[in-house]
Design a binder for these strands. Sequence first.
DNA 1: ACGAAATCTGTGAGCGCTCTAAGATAACCA
DNA 2: TGGTTATCTTAGAGCGCTCACAGATTTCGT
Lengths: 340, 340
Amino acid sequence: MSELRLEDIAKRAGVSRSTVSRVINNQPNVSEKARQRVLEVIKLTGFSPNAAARTLVSQRSNTIGLVLPHSVSTFFTDPYYPHLIKGITQACNQYDFTLALFVAGSKEYQEKLLPRLSSKGFLDGVILQSGHQADQSIILELSKTNLPMLVAGRPLYDDEVCFIDIDNIAASEKAVRHLINCGRKKIVIITGPLTSTVGLDRLSGYRNAMDSSSLKYNDNSIIESDFTEQGGYNAMQKLISSKPDAVFAASDMMAIGAIRFIRDAGLNVPKDIAVVGFDDLPIPMVNELQLTTIRQPVVQFGFKAVETLIELIENDLPIIKRVLMDTELIIRKSCGFESG
Amino acid sequence: MSELRLEDIAKRAGVSRSTVSRVINNQPNVSEKARQRVLEVIKLTGFSPNAAARTLVSQRSNTIGLVLPHSVSTFFTDPYYPHLIKGITQACNQYDFTLALFVAGSKEYQEKLLPRLSSKGFLDGVILQSGHQADQSIILELSKTNLPMLVAGRPLYDDEVCFIDIDNIAASEKAVRHLINCGRKKIVIITGPLTSTVGLDRLSGYRNAMDSSSLKYNDNSIIESDFTEQGGYNAMQKLISSKPDAVFAASDMMAIGAIRFIRDAGLNVPKDIAVVGFDDLPIPMVNELQLTTIRQPVVQFGFKAVETLIELIENDLPIIKRVLMDTELIIRKSCGFESG
DNA sequence: ACGAAATCTGTGAGCGCTCTAAGATAACCA
DNA sequence: TGGTTATCTTAGAGCGCTCACAGATTTCGT
């Protein structure tokens, strides 16, 4: 069907182009009679207006981009991203936006991406998943284009850019404080990469909690790792010498690895060493191990990111927006907490 | 920057609009001098042409859609999809296409999707991930719009639609035949949902292999399951009564579940029961268990899907294309195969 | 040196829509 | 019934680009 234009519908309905346009866009100043006639013809012909023409004249495409820079190499393994996308698509559906997905598989491709992203008349705005120092340049380049942009995750240098993040500092503070409340004193941490704000912030939270309870920790209490299971295992191996009674892992995968090592070492979780993770993504293991963890509202995060970006788009003058989302401590058994 | 139009670049470079257009589109008939001057101005101003205007006049958006219908409820948990998307985005990058992602979170939203997908001037074509009977209607509706469409996965009724799939029948035939070659005789199968072609085809392959070796099987040799680990566990529980010496699970997750049950039952893999799975996605467990399995080329599959769709797009008259991709048997230990 | 062929450049139309401003019609009150 | 307002409709311009075609310039053979 449809090599149809507005003009054709107009002719068939015996009205003019603009009347049809008004009907399609739900605008007033159309008589009920005309509206009905037009709607009928539209239904009959299965007409739907040309998106490019609309975009051209209205300067709005109702499309937003999600950019996963090269630093996000875990896209293909980490269940975080599908959930993020779930939230984003849900919001797009609700607000009648379309999502364009850009996965920068390599550094070179990332270069090629920029003109495409910033070419007018294609995207109304962009969500850039980041929080890694490697993405500094792409953030900068994109800011220069005046394209509304929201960074999902806190950028390392966050002046002038809008971002949405979960409150990682408060979250890990909450996690560590919980261990303290459970009576643990020698608490160590397995951090994520300290080249990313996620890694840094979760460490800050640990420090805050320890400091405010006057608990001691030193360089041997902190091992940097990489969010993987094996990384957690290896980190725990290093941490064990300081004889901790609790470990806070900055991701569930690392917590799982840590638990594996603790057990391999013949110790008991939580009796000898309490464990708290971070994420609470639906990995079967998390449930099986009864892991106490911080629940990230990933889906809601994606949703809120879109809502925030839309605000940015609809505001004519550029504004700086920062959103921090709360997390929830999910208490299971690995922290050794006994209620009552 | 850039409220810039072609016209402005032309003025600054001292040439006309069309010359600039020619330069941008790498067309001939531009003197080297003019070309250099234009390129310089473009670089200087950071100009990039308006995508909507281009699309409007050229009737090409260089954007394709990936539609995940509601039936794909496992999008958020199955590592298959990220890998599929990887292949798709790689191809999009290579061929200078952009990917628009449509995830139908609900049946109702799926309705709302159709006009958006089929509106002219937005998508050049669509890849619909399917193979489930529930998607029959959306496939039909989309075909009607004349939008080039490729189904990724074999549709249940496949007349008139283009599709790309892996050769599931040949693959599972190969898997089962391998078990036969290993000397197994009482081979049972855990299938996927028989409402999908994946489920049906992998069962067909099993039958083919069994029949051609004149091995017996009956209703008790075949249990329908749902591709999940727990589903595999439950299915194996039912199958155990027929005292099989091998089981072919139509997915790795189910194979893992089956192995868990077999061990719970005090039996040994592969000594008592050999196991072959299907997928070979990089799930840590697959390696740990040394699972013999069929490797799906998921990334290449996504890549090839895009290439095929582009062919469809570039062919003026509609053609029917069918692509079947080969798989590879990955022999590890769970099948009890001893070489030499 | 001059015309023909080859190469380059610019003009104008038009892709299909939205939106403004002006014109037509209907509704209303005195 | 006539004039005024409120409601509806339409014509026209223009969003920023591509492409066909005509016009200008260069190249080349003789």
